[in-house]
Simulated scan of single mutants.
Amino acid sequence: MVVRPIAVVTDLAVVGAGVLGLTAALWARHRHPAWTVLVLDRQQVLHGASGHSLAIAAPSGHTPRVRELALRSGQLYRSGVFREAVRDRAGLVVCRAATARALSHHLTAPVRRLPAIEPYEAGLLGELRTDAGDEVYAVGRGFLHVEVAALAAWVDIVPDWPVVSCIRTRSCWELRGPGGAVHRARRVVVAVGPWAAPEVGDRSGAAWGAGGGRVKRVAVLRVPAARATASDPLVVFPEENLLLAPADGYVEVSFLRTRWRDVPLSGDGQPGADPADQGLTDEDLAEGRSALAARGPSLAARATVGRAFWDTYYPDAEPRVTSPPGDRSLVRLDGGAGTGVRLAPALAEAAIGAVE
């Protein structure tokens, strides 16, 4: 819910209205109903990665810690706090047996091999190519689709309020924004994704830096598909880094994009003003068509529209929950590898546990 800034000192201020910030705010309200909680964002709600991604939480992780966080997030998503904003999605994985064996070590949900794919050929899978040696696996109770807009409707958000710095005083944090405006909070969670984080320090000039990730281009194609329905399972081709999410009459396709920047985003995100432009470029489209052609040539031929955005990736692809030395009343959250939706509830639980 969009609100105006308030003059009182809030119990918690969240910087960033993406999925990490929104889940942190909701978890704080769940844990501490008496707290005043306010989310501040530099732009309009859901302008960034969380508003443009497929918002699919996959039951997987490349390390034991990430798998633990993914499993915990699935439990929390299905709890009363977030339950109305998520729905379960069935999933199919199409790959060779050796790939499936390797993948099984990274999944947190049961997988079973299907004896035949004919029951699914009437839907989207009938328009996709399976190769000799491919096997099809069903993933049980694992994928979740998250309605991030529903999360945003349940918290108080001040849009167009970029936080430039967070300064520690004796009694609270001063969050300094546009035109010299100041918001004060006893606790702060910073979850800004690929955007430049506010400077964090104290009035003596001591500063704390966090970050180190790179900013990666992410793109999604939206392709007309008459056979597709919203009840069809997701289809994953791990060997091609493709994820297809069917809806009624179309399919959204996530693919591996290979464009990077080494510095955070800093502009206003409007088209032409900053690399944060959410529009799909000719380069995005060409790379997406090439990736999709390997498994869905007819879909690739029809692909003309989609969306693109940026997200933060760390070399080790590990999420981060960090605080300035000696002061846990401020926490910074980073998904680590475009995994904000997948890990958000567990990271929110950790962040609020740190600032309590």
Results as ranks from 00 to 15, higher is better:
residue 212 G to A: 05
residue 214 R to W: 11
residue 218 V to A: 14
residue 143 F to N: 05
residue 143 F to I: 03
residue 207 A to E: 11
residue 212 G to V: 01
residue 133 G to L: 09
residue 151 L to M: 10
residue 196 A to F: 05
residue 163 V to R: 06
residue 142 G to L: 02
residue 170 R to W: 06
residue 130 T to K: 02
residue 132 A to W: 11
residue 112 R to N: 10
residue 183 H to W: 00
residue 123 G to Y: 13
residue 159 P to Q: 03
residue 156 D to L: 00
residue 192 V to D: 06
residue 153 A to F: 12
residue 137 Y to R: 02
residue 145 H to R: 15
residue 157 I to W: 02
residue 104 S to A: 15
residue 119 P to C: 11
residue 104 S to G: 13
residue 214 R to N: 00
residue 186 R to W: 11
residue 153 A to P: 08
residue 195 W to A: 07
residue 184 R to I: 03
residue 111 V to C: 08
residue 161 W to C: 03
residue 146 V to F: 12
residue 154 W to E: 14
residue 193 G to S: 13
residue 106 H to M: 09
residue 210 A to N: 09
residue 201 G to N: 08
residue 152 A to V: 10
residue 198 P to H: 11
residue 108 T to Y: 06
residue 176 R to H: 05
residue 176 R to V: 03
residue 115 P to E: 13
residue 150 A to Q: 15
residue 144 L to V: 10
residue 202 D to V: 03
residue 138 A to L: 13
residue 142 G to M: 09
residue 149 A to C: 13
residue 171 S to N: 12
residue 119 P to A: 09
residue 167 I to T: 12
residue 135 E to C: 09
residue 176 R to T: 08
residue 113 R to S: 13
residue 131 D to A: 13
residue 162 P to K: 04
residue 175 L to D: 00
residue 187 R to T: 04
residue 206 A to N: 08
residue 175 L to F: 02
residue 193 G to P: 08
residue 153 A to T: 12
residue 107 L to G: 00
residue 178 P to I: 07
residue 124 L to G: 03
residue 161 W to T: 04
residue 144 L to W: 07
residue 209 G to F: 10
residue 138 A to F: 12
residue 120 Y to A: 01
residue 126 G to R: 11
residue 151 L to T: 03
residue 137 Y to A: 00
residue 199 E to K: 04
residue 136 V to S: 00
residue 186 R to S: 11
residue 128 L to V: 05
residue 147 E to Y: 14
residue 183 H to S: 09
residue 207 A to C: 13
residue 131 D to K: 07
residue 149 A to E: 14
residue 132 A to K: 06
residue 154 W to Y: 10
residue 159 P to M: 04
residue 197 A to T: 05
residue 209 G to S: 12
residue 109 A to Y: 04
residue 141 R to N: 15
residue 163 V to L: 06
residue 114 L to W: 07
residue 151 L to Q: 07
residue 177 G to N: 04
residue 168 R to C: 00
residue 115 P to V: 11
residue 117 I to C: 01
residue 119 P to R: 07
residue 124 L to V: 15
residue 207 A to R: 15
residue 177 G to H: 01
residue 159 P to A: 07
residue 106 H to T: 13
residue 187 R to N: 08
residue 118 E to N: 04
residue 132 A to T: 08
residue 120 Y to S: 03
residue 150 A to F: 12
residue 126 G to M: 06
residue 183 H to T: 09
